[in-house]
Amino acid sequence: MYEELESNFFLIVKLNKAKAFGLVFDAYWNALYKQAYKKVHCNDLAQDLVQDVFVSLWDKIELLDAERSVLAYLFAILRNKILKLYEKDEIRLRYALSVTSSASPSDVHSQNTLLEKELKAIIDIEVARMPIRMKEIYMLKKEDDLSIKQIAEDLSLSEQTVKNQLQMAYQRLRTKIKNYDSSLALLALFIAKHL
Rank of each mutant, 00 (worst) to 15 (best):
S98I: 01
N164A: 12
A192L: 07
A152Y: 04
N16D: 15
Q160G: 13
C42H: 15
I12N: 05
Q35H: 09
K60M: 00
S7M: 14
I137N: 04
S182R: 14
K39Y: 09
V162S: 00
L23V: 02
F190M: 13
F21K: 01
V162L: 04
R172S: 12
I125G: 10
L78Y: 00
S182M: 10
N43I: 03
K178F: 10
D154G: 08
I177H: 07
L15P: 00
Q160V: 13
L78T: 00
L74V: 04
A27F: 11
K176F: 02
D52T: 07
Y86G: 06
L97H: 06
L5D: 00
V55K: 04
E90S: 10
K88W: 10
K84M: 06
Y28R: 07
V40M: 05
L49R: 08
D26V: 05
A121N: 13
E136Y: 01
A46H: 00
D52Y: 08
F10V: 01
L57K: 07
I91A: 04
N80E: 07
T161V: 14
V13P: 00
A66Y: 08
K193Q: 12
I125D: 15
A128I: 02
F9I: 04
N16A: 02
E159M: 09
D124K: 11
P131V: 04
K84G: 12
S101Q: 11
T161I: 07
R79W: 03
